[in-house]
């Protein structure tokens, strides 16, 4: 077998994607697999350039169960926007952030003639890893599912636990069961908790499927920070969008954006959100060795501008929503309450 035989086989059997930069067109083969965790339809797609096959994981802004629909709010209808904006934040973390950086791209995907927004990312498992999910979300695991933590343990000690320190200790124990050292687990979990607090991630503490690791062939296990679709929560509906369309609301409205930024902070997302005051959660994080994220703020700002232009080009109906969400992220970063969570490492002007 040659080194590319896996990808060639995957290309022979999987869904193909042709991407001209503005539209990703899927082949006629069925896309996605409902056995992936999560509510969004997702699956791998394959593209061939010359002899080389490239693989990406695609998540559609579409419910995996065709009989069900997401809530009408844009955060549920278009999680790709939150995912990609948050990914741009993590992409501008200094490399010592101790969090993986999964690069999500915004996509408009055509499937059987229908266009759907979504996001795509490289196969985060690399070429030598298998995915590990911390705990089962059903009492009866499928025959191909392996968990070292039960649904009841997670529910009692993480999802329903109201104490930051206890939650952390239980999670360190759980990561150890998969071979992650307690030091590694603690460092990762504390950094991830700081990330979730900063971006108001509402999809961690209650979701055992969003504690993920990569088991590598060399025996090492790497915790992974991923899935940003419920970060930067922001109440946005068709009615609000129409107000931008009619000119009743304008981009950059300070009061509106600051209200949204306050909501993100009030969310107290992640495992370190148990205390009522945001600052008390941050203090506990720092007591556990949290290291503020080094963020290249200038590059982040520029890249968010580029992203919003991309959204305007690819899916103009989402432009106001994306632009406002990007501005909200910048306002969250500017808020005095979050200053202990990050430091600006932008190159200074010469």
């Amino acid at each position: 077998m040659n080194a590319n035989s896996y990808l060639n086989q995957a290309y022979a059997q999987g869904t193909h994607a042709d991407d001209d930069g503005s539209l990703m067109v899927l082949s006629q083969r069925p896309f996605g697999d409902s056995r992936f965790k999560g509510n969004q339809r997702k699956g791998m797609v394959y593209t061939k350039f010359g002899d080389q096959v490239f693989e990406r994981c695609v998540k559609l802004d579409d419910h995996r169960d065709r009989q069900r629909h997401f809530k009408p709010e844009y955060d549920f209808q278009y999680p790709s926007i939150s995912e990609v904006i948050t990914a741009y934040l993590t992409n501008n973390f200094h490399h010592e952030a101790f969090l993986s950086r999964l690069s999500y791209s915004f996509e408009v995907i055509q499937e059987h003639g229908r266009q759907i927004t979504g996001s795509s990312a490289p196969n985060f498992l690399g070429d030598d890893g298998l995915e590990v999910i911390l705990a089962n979300d059903s009492p009866n695991p499928e025959i191909y599912e392996h968990y070292a933590v039960t649904m009841e343990e997670f529910a009692h000690n993480v999802a329903d636990c109201g104490d930051n320190q206890q939650t952390l200790l239980h999670l360190i124990d759980y990561y150890q069961r998969y071979g992650v050292s307690p030091e590694h687990a603690k460092r990762f979990l504390v950094q991830q908790a700081g990330f979730d607090l900063l971006v108001g991630n509402t999809d961690r503490k209650q979701n055992m499927g969003n504690f993920v690791m990569i088991q590598r062939l060399n025996g090492l296990v790497h915790p992974l920070n991923f899935d940003y679709g419920r970060c930067l929560p922001m109440y946005w509906t068709d009615r609000i969008n129409a107000q931008f369309g009619s000119g009743k609301l304008q981009l950059g409205e300070v009061e509106l954006e600051q209200d949204y930024a306050n909501d993100v902070i009030r969310t107290r997302g992640g495992i370190f959100g148990n205390r009522t005051r945001f600052e008390d959660n941050v203090k506990e994080l720092l007591n556990n060795g949290f290291m503020p994220f080094q963020i290249d703020h200038r590059t982040l700002t520029n890249r968010l501008n580029d992203l919003c232009e991309e959204v305007q080009f690819k899916a103009p109906q989402l432009y106001w929503y994306a632009r406002t969400k990007a501005n909200v992220l910048l306002r969250v970063l500017a808020d005095p309450k979050t200053q202990a969570l990050w430091e600006d490492c932008s190159a200074s002007d010469l």
């Binding site: 035989s5 896996y6 086989q9 995957a10 022979a12 059997q13 999987g14 697999d33 056995r35 992936f36 699956g43 791998m44 693989e55 994981c57 196969n123 498992l125 070429d127 030598d128 890893g129 298998l130 995915e131 191909y144």
Partner: peptide
């Protein structure tokens, strides 16, 4: 040689 819901496993 390819499992759609278990990337990399063969």
């Amino acid at each position: 040689s390819w499992i759609p819901f278990k990337p990399n496993l063969t």
